[in-house]
Simulated scan of single mutants.
Amino acid sequence: MNLTDYFLVAMPDMDDPFFAECVIYVCEHNEDGALGIIINKPSPISIDMIYAAGGRNIPLRMQHENVMMGGPVQIDRGYVVHTPAGDWQSSIRVGDDIALTSSRDIIDNLADTEKVGKALVSIGYSSWYKGQLEQELADNIWLTLPADEHILFDVPYEQRYAAAFAKLGFAPEDLLRGAGHA
Rank of each mutant, 00 (worst) to 15 (best):
L176I: 10
S90P: 00
S46R: 12
G180P: 01
D15Q: 14
D16R: 09
D15I: 09
A53T: 09
W88A: 01
L145T: 14
V155Q: 04
I151T: 06
I98A: 05
L176Y: 00
V73D: 04
Q63T: 06
E134V: 03
H150M: 12
K167W: 00
Q74Y: 04
A34D: 06
Q89N: 12
E28Y: 00
G71M: 07
D154Q: 14
D48W: 06
I106W: 07
Y157W: 15
A171S: 13
N140D: 10
E149V: 02
A20M: 10
A164S: 15
E136L: 01
A162F: 10
G117F: 00
Q89R: 13
D96Y: 10
Q63H: 08
D76G: 08
F165K: 04
V23D: 11
M49N: 11
P84S: 13
A171M: 13
S46Y: 07
T113F: 00
A166I: 03
R160N: 08
L176V: 12
D148V: 02
L168G: 00
Y125C: 15
G180N: 13
Q159L: 14
W88Q: 03
F7T: 09
I106A: 10
Q89M: 14
G71H: 06
S43H: 06
S90E: 12
V116N: 02
G131E: 07
R77W: 00
G169L: 08
Q89K: 14
D97L: 07
L175W: 05
G71L: 09
L176N: 07
D154K: 10
D76W: 11
L152A: 12
S91H: 02
I37M: 15
N57H: 10
G33V: 09
G70T: 06
T4W: 15
R177M: 11
R104I: 09
D112K: 00
I106G: 07
A34N: 09
G95H: 09
W142K: 01
S91V: 03
E173F: 02
A164D: 02
A164T: 07
Y51K: 05
H150G: 04
I37A: 11
N2F: 13
M1L: 11
G180V: 14
A166E: 15
G180I: 13
F165I: 04
A166N: 15
I151L: 08
Q89S: 14
A163L: 04
P17C: 06
G131S: 08
V23F: 04
E136W: 03
D105F: 05
D5E: 14
S43G: 05
I39H: 05
G169D: 08
A138H: 03
V80N: 07
I141G: 02
Y125F: 15
G131W: 04
A10V: 03
P44D: 13
G124N: 05
G178H: 13
A99W: 10
Q89E: 15
L110M: 11
I92F: 08
F170V: 01
K41A: 14
M62V: 03
A182H: 10
L133W: 00
D174F: 02
L133A: 08
S103D: 06
E173D: 08
G55A: 05
Q132W: 05
G178M: 11
E21K: 15
